[in-house]
């Protein structure tokens, strides 16, 4: 037997060291019963609704912009009256239109990602105009308040831009990775058409979860503090996706898949967090210009 020596070494080790196999019944049952124990989502679970990745990413970005826009309007409602502003009317109109478009896209099968992004950009630009209109109104602010306000506005815009750029990067990358992984599965693992279809569904769900994770990361106030946790999370998502792809394969092809992965293939399935973010995202970095320079 090819692996004979390895097996005997393990048996000698057990016999000489006095180690015995542990009794894990109680621990497995306890962990299995706890909410976070065995109940982690599996790669085989299909998304509740089949939305394209671009639509989903657009929904996340749109929801962020919508929440900023709605929050802005609410803040203005409670702020001292600043007078009627055409910019505010335009913003409210754009928000309503974007909400309607998000609902339509979620219901329809059409690839409306370009139009959705255009809506997101329009709302974002409306927010900018409102910003500008308000900033021109005379206000008795101290210098410190002005500095703080400008810094907050700059940070909010930078954060929004980082999110959009990051999600675009992840989506584009995921698309390329999916095709590369599927090509590898066809050539080296010999998957059937049905298995390919199921594997693509797993990979699509993975992409959705990637963009969710990235979006949540950028929305956090102190996102740098959460960077290591997000990195771990992205690596976990890759491992779960790999397990999910494996699970849709027939038993012999599962072995071929294991060997294919063991030889260093599998692309982003095997690469942890590195493919999804520039290293700077997980270090101390907040400069949009630096991000854009990395992008180039």
């Amino acid at each position: 037997m090819k692996h004979d020596e390895r097996f005997w070494d393990a048996a000698f080790s057990e016999a000489f060291s006095g180690e015995t196999p542990p009794d894990l019944v109680a621990r497995v049952l306890a962990r299995g019963a706890s909410p976070s124990g065995a109940a982690a989502p599996s790669g085989r679970r299909a998304p509740a609704r089949r939305t394209g990745l671009w639509r989903a990413a657009g929904v996340f970005a749109a929801s962020l912009v919508l929440s900023l826009g709605v929050g802005f309007l609410q803040a203005l409602w409670f702020a001292p009256a600043a007078g009627h502003s055409p910019a505010l009317d335009a913003l409210a109109g754009d928000l309503a239109a974007t909400e309607r478009r998000v609902d339509d896209l979620l219901k329809s099968e059409s690839a409306g990602e370009t139009a959705l992004w255009a809506s997101v950009v329009r709302v974002s630009q409306s927010l900018d105009r409102v910003n500008l209109a308000l900033s021109r109104q005379p206000k008795a602010e101290s210098l410190d308040e002005v500095v703080a306000r400008v810094a907050d506005q700059r940070e909010a815009k930078a954060s929004e831009l980082r999110l959009r750029k990051h999600v675009e990067h992840v989506l584009a990358r995921h698309q390329r990775e999916t095709e590369s992984i599927v090509a590898g599965l066809r050539e080296k693992v010999g998957i059937t058409q049905e298995e390919e279809k199921a594997a693509r569904a797993v990979l699509e769900a993975w992409g959705l979860r990637l963009t969710e994770s990235i979006s949540v990361y950028h929305r956090r106030r102190d996102h740098r503090r959460h960077a290591p946790e997000v990195r771990e999370g992205l690596a976990e998502l890759a491992a779960e996706a790999a397990m999910g792809v494996r699970a849709v394969l027939e038993a012999r092809r599962q072995l071929a898949f294991d060997d294919w992965m063991a030889q260093g293939h599998g692309g982003a399935l095997a690469q942890g967090a590195e493919r999804w973010a520039p290293p700077a995202v997980f270090n101390n970095w907040d400069d949009v210009d630096e991000y854009l320079a990395w992008q180039r």
Binding site: H3, R6, D9, A10, A11, P21, V25, V28, G32
Partner: peptide
């Protein structure tokens, strides 16, 4: 699961050691 763990835990542990 309890019977499954009892019946196979030693084998899986030894396999992983190997």
């Amino acid at each position: 699961i309890e019977s499954l763990v009892r019946a196979h835990q030693a084998d899986i542990w030894r396999f992983l050691r190997a």
